[in-house]
Amino acid sequence: MQALLGALGRLARAPLATMLTLLVIGLALALPAALGLLVRNAESATGGFGRAVDMTVYLKNGVTLSRAQQLATVARSRPGVASVTVISAAEGLRQFRKYSGFGAALAALKSNPLPNVLRVVPRPRASGPLALEALRRKFAAWPEVDMVQLDTQWVMRFNAIIAVVRRLVLLAAALLGVGVLAVVGNTIRLEILNRSDEIEVTKLVGGSNSFVRRPFVYTGALYGLGGAVLAWVILEGAVLALSGPAARLAELYGSGFVLRGLGGRELALLFGGGMALGWLGAWISAFRHLRSIEPRA
């Protein structure tokens, strides 16, 4: 406890040096955390797209509306299917006339050229590219089905991009974690050199290695925790700055997507991880450098 207070006091006595170290650690922690946030937000955004992903099942021209309704009931009972809507040929024509701008030309048609259509919305957990493809094949195999339209290419590409970024997060976290270890380790090494007299005297009166090490290890843990808090502040600032434009973008896409900051568990991970890295870096440094300071009265 006393060692902890002593460590705090020493950090407070050199505010500029402490702030600089904290800033370096904070940035090193903020970068992987920001990438992680990006992935999480992108996933929640595509989660929205995933629900928007649907399949258009075109029935053959001779299939009647009542048959279409029967098929819809069968489709609804399939696992992985969230909902099925029947769009009748008449309804289809009306929509086409309204949105396409070919109203006058269509009016010249004697009969409706459009087939009855089923619009199938898969469940979110069945929205992966493989599951979608499997579902598409099932429907395509039905004799009443003319064709099934599904644009899976972009879903696959998007998922691949997310996978790359997620790997990037791990890499960045590992590299910058090593960076935090090095920064804390070096800071502690300088501190040990500065206080070598004190360490020597402490050992002279019977201080064990672990006793001498304790305040340095606490200092390292405080650096890590302080850096994590700083990283959190940086991230919250970034989220705040981005949330306005992001909301406008989401609105334009007709999505209810909201940019989110760190949740409770992620925050705990950031703080715990920062503290653990600081602790470890200080411990390694103290273990290596304290042994070399032996009293030589």
């Binding site: 005297v201 050992k203 009166v205």
Partner: peptide, 18 residues
């Protein structure tokens, strides 16, 4: 050694105070 040194008082010419 630390436990041993606690059983021993040492005085130095340059007194080794902090």
């Amino acid at each position: 050694i630390p436990a041993f040194r606690r059983q021993l008082g040492m005085v130095f010419q340059d007194h080794k105070l902090l």
